[in-house]
């Protein structure tokens, strides 16, 4: 109870600060894809929090995975005369005409998390993470952690052919390139799910001498890692010690595993895309500073030294 008061107090204080620094009490429209994953739910929650902290009146529209709903929402934002629009586009194509309408109405559009195929003068900036970089950070952690020791790595890929799976694989391979002590011995898709992550890890363990031949697991997302950790435990090995576990996303459950010593590292795909977006918007409305066309969010590495239980407590109510 006390803590909520403190948070509200901090929020009010922050919003007062924001108000004093900029007199623009803004209305921003936010067209979200939907709530298909926990991460997206967390993105929505954080966007609303960030808007509240800055005293921005956020108009939220959930498109339920449909582009036509997003275009409708954008047109209604333009008709209402909002000061800016945040758009998390469900697909990359087909945005030209509605973005031009926004441009004619002098409403800056900021893309969140995903890109569009339209020409880049139709939007102010795009905020997103670099998927290759995420894989790179994970690989670099493993290189540093091993310090030259020989290590056979197994990889749980995301859905075959999806861009996170391709990019996170490439990034990791770039990072371990030139380190001959690290060998990628098996790589299979776990479809980004816990069930498949567990099933595929079970087969890895059997195929590699009951797991004795495996020294580390790299999973393209935390959910697969959580499933694989259970498979490792059921095989009578200690995840985090016998087999190092590094994954990407930083969802709350992986921090519980990390606190229990069963996972070693995770790279955050931050759901706070709105913070940098609002910062860029504030600078733009204040004195017309043009932000770069792509704002890359930080891919922060978390290990057991980052007080996983505390991070878990912070993240668990974001709607993941």
């Amino acid at each position: 109870m006390k803590s909520t008061k403190a948070i509200v107090g901090a929020g009010v204080l922050a919003s007062m600060l924001m108000l004093s620094s900029s007199v623009f009490a803004q209305t921003v429209g936010f067209s979200q894809i939907g709530s298909e994953s926990g991460w997206r739910a967390a993105e929505t929650t954080l966007t609303q929090q960030q808007a509240k902290e800055r005293g921005i009146d956020l108009k939220f529209a959930d498109a339920q995975q449909k582009q036509e709903n997003q275009i409708k929402a954008l047109r209604s934002f333009i008709a209402q005369g909002v000061d800016a629009i945040l758009l998390a586009p469900v697909v990359a194509t087909g945005w030209d005409s509605v973005l031009e309408e926004a441009k004619e109405a002098d409403i800056p559009v900021i893309l969140l998390d995903r890109m569009v195929d339209s020409s880049d003068d139709l939007y102010l900036t795009a905020v997103g993470s670099d998927l290759v970089h995420e894989g790179n950070v994970a690989g670099q952690w493993l290189v540093d952690e091993l310090g030259g020791k020989d290590c056979n790595v197994v990889e749980l890929q995301g859905t075959t052919g999806s861009s996170p799976a391709i990019d996170r694989k490439n990034g990791f391979e770039q990072a371990i390139k030139g380190h001959d002590n690290i060998k990628l011995i098996r790589s299979q898709t776990g479809d980004f799910t816990r069930t498949k992550g567990k099933e595929v890890m079970e087969s890895f363990l059997k195929a590699e001498d009951g797991g004795k031949n495996i020294c580390a697991l790299y999973a393209h997302n935390d959910d697969m890692a959580v499933g694989a950790i259970q498979a490792i435990k059921e095989a009578g090995l200690k995840p985090g010690e016998d087999i190092l576990v590094v994954s990407i996303d930083a969802v709350p459950d992986i921090f519980q595993a990390m606190a229990a010593g069963e996972a070693n590292a995770t790279v955050e795909l931050t759901p706070n895309m709105a913070g940098p977006a609002f910062d860029a918007l504030a600078a733009y409305t204040k004195d017309g500073t043009m932000p770069p066309k792509f704002i890359q969010t930080e891919s922060k590495l978390y290990t057991k030294d980052d007080d996983p239980m505390k991070v878990y407590e912070e993240k668990k109510d974001l709607g993941y």
Partner: peptide, 14 residues
């Protein structure tokens, strides 16, 4: 069984 196996209910993928 599927939920108990991963100690969680995954409505999207189960």
């Amino acid at each position: 069984i599927a939920a108990a196996d991963i100690r969680g209910a995954d409505a999207n993928n189960a």
